[in-house]
Design a protein around this nucleic acid. Structure first.
Ligand SMILES: [Mn+2]
Ligand SMILES: [Mn+2]
Ligand SMILES: [Zn+2]
Ligand SMILES: [Zn+2]
Lengths: 174, 174
DNA sequence: TTTTCAATGCGAAGCATTTCCATTATCGGC
DNA sequence: GCCGATAATGGAAATGCTTCGCATTGAAAA
């Protein structure tokens, strides 16, 4: 989802604050990883981020990116998302509105949406069963407008043999 | 979800029909795995089913259970479900109504529910973005009634050191 | 029966993620 | 600025779930 507005604190301040409160240490790797994460608006995996980081500093290892992404999540800057391909994606969380995802099973396109009505009914449903709701995951799969009018062969976003982000398989959950 | 009513065909007939149409073969292993799957109403993993099968026939291998569960899914008898612990669970699909899940983050309890209103809004949302909806995954997490009034120590369903089915971790998707 | 080729079961491989651990680096105190 | 305690790093190895490869077994059509 698009960024809403600048809060009174920026992401780097939030991060440093979290590091201090938790008795952790500021390192060049964490700074670099955060910086690159912040300037990338797409959903990305640890691996994706790892390669972006590599371009700036080839000495950074996979493990550090995994660990830092988890740290960013704890700090409230990142959010984990799964699209059903068994990979963990991350997206910006701070100053970004909550949203759910609509995923094209043909080309993997991901649309972000927010429905206050659905959110309200989810909460109502949880309460109806005596639960105090904490969070949820809603994903809708379907065929996007582009893919409806295109043959499977000549595909808009798949033209150059790219893999669809989401495998076409009807799994509930994942 | 509870079983609705007997269809005119039972699960074994459905299975044999699928096997024939696909040019596959009926085997003792498949019969046994199907039989045990059918008499188990809970959500179970391939591993869970493997151990149940072991009790009847220790010669059956992991791989066959995995393969058969996939086969049952293709035949429309089983449905894959994920609860966020990185395992694939299966549930009965034939003659069982579609439903979504409400999961307790404390004890792992799973409640099945169906909300026609939410379903309708999901479809409306997909169409609003030009998508033809194919399927969806909705999971609600929260704290169940029992867990709200119990301390973390003495837990109703966790009394004997059992692991919660669902790790307590806020991941969207999985 | 015989023939054919799907199915099985084992071990090995995949894949994303985590753990181990020896080495390096941060940062509060001197 | 220098130390020392200990957090952080990175590469390799391990993990956990699932799939593959392949030699062997067995269903079922002829
Ligand atoms: Mn998103
Ligand atoms: Mn269910
Ligand atoms: Zn598409
Ligand atoms: Zn509970």
């Amino acid at each position: 989802m698009t960024k809403i507005k600048e809060g009174y604190k920026n992401e780097k301040e939030i991060f440093l604050e979290h590091i201090q409160k938790a008795g952790l240490r500021r390192t060049a790797q964490r700074d670099l990883i955060l910086e690159i994460f912040l300037k990338t608006e797409e959903h990305l995996t640890s691996e994706d981020l790892y390669w972006l980081v590599q371009k700036q500093d080839p000495s950074v290892g996979h493990t550090t990116v995994y660990r830092t992404l988890k740290l960013l999540t704890e700090a409230g800057l990142a959010r984990e998302v799964r699209f059903g391909d068994n990979k963990t994606y991350y997206e910006h969380h701070y100053n970004h509105e909550h949203h759910d995802h609509l995923i094209c099973t043909e080309c993997g396109k991901v649309v972000e949406f927010f429905s206050p009505e659905i959110e309200a009914m989810q909460d109502a449903t949880a309460h109806k069963f005596g639960f105090v709701p904490t969070h949820h995951s809603l994903r809708l799969w379907g065929i996007c407008e582009d893919c409806q009018q295109t043959t499977h062969e000549s595909h808009p976003s798949m033209a150059s043999g790219a893999q669809p982000r989401v495998r076409v398989k009807t799994v509930v959950g994942s």
